[in-house]
Write a protein that binds this DNA or RNA. Structure first.
Lengths: 198, 198
DNA sequence: GCCAAAGGTGACGCCTCCGTCACCTTTGCA
DNA sequence: TGCAAAGGTGACGGAGGCGTCACCTTTGGC
């Protein structure tokens, strides 16, 4: 967006790439990655079949690009949330708030991730939807070291938080409008109690 | 098994059906339902293509049959676990133990469910992997009514338990041999603390 | 042992997908 | 305005999936 005013050539390129990504998000989210074909994506676009291959070698590359985008956004939000946390409660609440706000704002991406979580797990490494389970674990480790939280299995705890967050987030998104603060409050109370009692 | 000693005709039929289901479990677990074809399943069998259609109309029906099987087993185990629970802690621990033992014993089915959770959710109704979220919610409600647990949002709590259980179970299964009791202890402590503090 | 019913078999016609490539349109530069 | 490079287009050959059906083997009753 900052350097948008380039030549028409460049602009078309960016627009085509974006059109493919947008179409793929929808197609993957509601047919599932496995059942989706490159033609399905192209059809949801006004481009010709051959054009697709000027941008991506296959549908897997498109999925990868979509995930990179989502991960970038998610990481930025989580980093921001962490920066301002002073207490354990703020830390937990901030993390969940960032997570739930993301889900609420970008439903399509959430649906994409949720629908294809299994595929993503097997296709790429571990992360899948919790695009930051490992960072969370490291943060918990740091909290233990700082004496804020009793020692516990931080790997299991991080996974439990991600898993519970996913399900709680799903329920949240089912309601319209989604009650972000309610979800944050629930998840925070749950894990603050668990962490203190660890 | 009880009425197995029927004619050869019957036995072949049962064997063929079982062969298709077994093959499908493997194929769906590692290619994903969407990417799998009826031919993939048939190929993993020593039957001919046409035979498949004498047993199932399409691959979706096979998935449905696999899920019915799994749900039946899971429900039986959970019911048994509940029967013996006397305290809150026993109730929670019993539920998680039943769940984790199932995952540990039938890895293939677990992989099938985990890999295709998104597809299952959209293809059939809600349940997917937590083949008993609703029952769990009802049990929590009963515990609240009985005064064993403070009032709380039982729907969210049930989902959080299922979500956390799934992730904790995944970690458990990654290790060999899987530490069922460790997983049970972790999950139980987590949710007993949360429930008491609700 | 015979024969009709059950049911396994795999080739077939139809369809869609894949990735490519020769062709044509558009763009940017001079 | 002219022209070369960039890149969009869609038809094409090859592959493979789908569900069917005529045919053949097996089974079970008599």
């Amino acid at each position: 967006m900052s350097e948008a005013a380039t030549g028409r050539r460049e602009r078309t390129k960016a627009a085509n790439r974006a059109a493919i990504l947008d179409a793929a998000r929808v197609v993957f989210a509601d047919s599932g990655f496995g059942a989706a074909s490159v033609r399905d994506i192209v059809r949801a676009t006004d481009l010709a079949a051959g054009t697709f291959y000027n941008y991506f070698p296959d549908k897997e590359a498109v999925l990868r690009a979509l995930l990179d985008e989502a991960a970038l956004e998610a990481r930025a939000r989580l980093r921001a949330a962490r920066a301002s946390a002073r207490t354990l409660e703020e830390f937990v609440a901030g993390g969940f708030r960032a997570y739930f706000e993301f889900l609420a704002e970008d439903r399509l991406t959430f649906e994409l991730l949720r629908r294809n979580a299994g595929t993503i797990r097997t296709l790429f490494g571990q992360p899948a939807l919790g695009a930051g389970t490992e960072e969370l674990r490291a943060d918990l480790e740091a909290a233990v070291a700082a004496g804020v939280v009793p020692p516990h299995d931080t790997d299991l705890m991080a996974r439990a938080m991600v898993g519970a967050g996913l399900e709680v987030g799903s329920r949240m998104v089912e309601r319209d409008p989604p009650d972000v603060e309610g979800a944050v409050a629930f998840a925070t109370r749950l894990f603050v109690a668990a962490l203190n009692a660890a």
